[in-house]
């Protein structure tokens, strides 16, 4: 009998916009089957905004035991993510906040997570996505 597969690192996507968060989750999920990618976009009533309490719930939903990388888009999305880490207390020990780009970081991080990398490797990949060569010139 083989050992159970190691759980993949999960991702949480925090945006002011529910559409941006959900769309990015969809895009990143395409390349990373089996990775929990949870969108935390907008306020509970669907309005534009950020809500750290929703981020806490999203982290809990994304954590399959290997930890979670949180990606935030702009401004108060970062403040909400940091606040969520405080609210999580000890449970934040295996949660990381990426300072990298939102969409590109999510896609790269999802791929790394699907390969079974640990949370710090997934974080490093998400942050390195800022230097991704898009072959524009």
């Amino acid at each position: 009998m083989s050992a159970p597969p190691r759980p993949a690192v999960g991702l949480v996507l925090v945006s002011h916009s529910p559409l941006v968060a959900a769309g990015t989750a969809e895009l990143a999920g395409q390349m990373a089957p089996g990775v929990r990618i949870v969108a935390a976009g907008g306020l509970a009533d669907g309005r534009l905004g950020t809500d750290a309490v929703r981020v806490v719930a999203a982290v809990e939903a994304a954590d399959g035991g290997a930890g979670v990388v949180v990606l935030a888009d702009l401004g108060s999305a970062v403040l909400a993510a940091r606040t969520a880490l405080e609210l999580l207390g000890e449970r934040a020990a295996r949660v990381r906040l990426s300072g990298g780009p939102f969409v590109e970081g999510a896609v790269v991080a999802a791929v790394e997570a699907s390969l079974g990398r640990d949370v710090d490797r997934v974080l490093a990949a998400a942050e390195a996505a800022a230097g991704l060569d898009k072959h524009v010139r």
Partner: peptide, 21 residues
């Protein structure tokens, strides 16, 4: 604090929320 954090929606939510927390 938790009410402000989850209902304000902008930067002032986590900032005032953290203040009260």
């Amino acid at each position: 604090a938790l009410t402000l954090i989850s209902t304000v929606g902008g930067a002032s939510g986590p900032l005032y929320g953290t203040f009260f927390l």
